[in-house]
Design a protein around this nucleic acid. Structure first.
Lengths: 260, 260
DNA sequence: CGGCACTGTTCCGGTGAGCGGAACGGTTCG
DNA sequence: CGAACCGTTCCGCTCACCGGAACAGTGCCG
């Protein structure tokens, strides 16, 4: 089991530095494991039980971990500090109200995403309770760049060279309709640049399609992407693209006031 | 200037432990200071420049900090890990779609909050772009318990003893209409328990009022509160309370499936 | 031009914070 | 009751960490 590899495009942890150990401890808490016992943490991290005990106590004092009847869980302070990260905070604060309106105009699910490493990172997800379906996406969740509408918008309008890096590795097949041929992907991106928006039909999830647009910051550089996902049955691409475009122009104005 | 005291109800940082230093560094990034230079960090934390340099480098390698043309800023990884905190994640994921609907039903601003320490901590905030006003509240922002509708709902239906702790210190006057007399607050909370919902008229911000209900987890214990804020001019307390009640019952059902 | 006041970065010797094996008390098993 | 687990504490060794000092690069002012 490769523990260190999980969780994004960052360098590996160093076992014999305090920070390395803390990192191992905090990153053991995946989305599945909500709470972990001391022994379990020691086992999974490979650290000595005494060390985990000492560090965990200090983390609890900080508020990054909490202790509920013997088990450790990630603490509220971590959420609080995470909300201060400037890029996500500015983008979300500006986009959220517009996303809410978009949900009601389209009856779909709206995503705000940035590129992090070689993946799409979802900053925000808004959907209505009425039309709510169990989408696999999560806020702070990751998806491949090549099979999502947001990913394609970011690839098409983002920094050059990103596409090459993505195509350096074989493209993962997520559904039967996912584009895995590099040539086809390049073609799709050309089309995306032409139209000004990206689409995706059942390439992420069967039965659903998405339309996405890039969001440009003050300098004109693409900093994020916004998408609407609806059931395939009621796909009105041009209508959705139009509604997204309106919001996109509004966002660009808002973003120009901020520095991203 | 008291640097350590800021940022919640947690124990102070220890300067001569690695974690203590890291904590100082990370918590220097407030909502105002988006980016900080190395020297500035060293100055504010009181740590040696070499130490800050070494630790910051390790934090960048981890992804908790990012470096953009010489300046440090909080990194995306921090946001990502913060989103895994289970209490906030479960509550938000369940509540967000319902909050979106509530926004459109009421044309107000909807907040989801928990109590952390002796304050209200906002987990989520949803408002529409049309009716958007610059509310001072932020996601992951904090407010006093005694002057907000969510705070009063949490005080009235939350764990016993919390009220005593709050009243141990003098109640801060936020606006001219904020309840600062302990006796009056107790009376308001009695009324809240009687009605099943809490209200607040211009006690947080002049021109606005809020209605809030408690959200009960699987065991019946109050775990969070949900509120709607609208301009004072169109305050329909009983209507808002009714709409909140519907959502509240729905949330209770959803929360019973999870373990909070 | 040189001096100055800043940056960020590197070096390195002393040392105490951190380490973790081992032992300890408290459970929950069969 | 022993066995196997848990969390917690102890303590001496040692190496990762510390931070003053020296270094290089930059922008400003006289």
């Amino acid at each position: 089991m490769e523990l260190i590899a999980e969780g994004g495009p960052y360098a590996a942890a160093d076992t014999n530095s305090v920070l390395g150990k803390v990192r191992l401890i905090l990153e053991m808490f995946g989305l599945d494991d909500e709470t972990l016992s001391l022994s379990e943490l020691a086992r999974r991290t490979g650290l000595a039980k005494a060390s985990v005990h000492r560090l965990s106590q200090e983390l609890v004092r900080w508020g990054l971990l909490e202790r509920r009847n013997g088990e450790y869980r990630l603490g509220m302070r971590l959420f609080e500090i995470g909300q201060r990260v400037p890029r996500q905070r500015i983008l979300r604060d500006l986009a959220r109200p517009l996303m809410v309106d978009l949900v009601h105009a389209t009856s779909g699910t709206v995503h705000l995403a940035v590129v992090d490493g070689l993946e799409v990172l979802y900053l925000e997800k808004v959907s209505s309770g009425n039309t709510h379906v169990n989408h696999p996406s999560r806020v702070a969740g990751r998806m491949p760049l090549h099979c999502t509408a947001t990913g394609k918008a970011l690839l098409a309008f983002g920094r050059r060279g990103l596409l090459d890096e993505v195509m350096a590795a074989p493209l993962a097949r997520v559904t039967a309709r996912t584009t895995v041929a590099p040539g086809l992907l390049a073609q799709e991106l050309d089309r995306t640049r032409e139209l000004g928006y990206a689409t995706e039909f059942e390439q992420t999830r069967l039965g659903y399609m998405s339309v996405a647009i890039p969001l440009a910051g003050a300098t004109g550089v693409t900093v994020a992407a916004l998408s609407v996902t609806v059931p395939l049955s009621r796909s009105k691409v041009d209508l959705l693209a139009g509604q997204l475009g309106l919001v996109g122009r509004h966002m660009t104005k808002l973003l120009s006031a901020e520095e991203i």
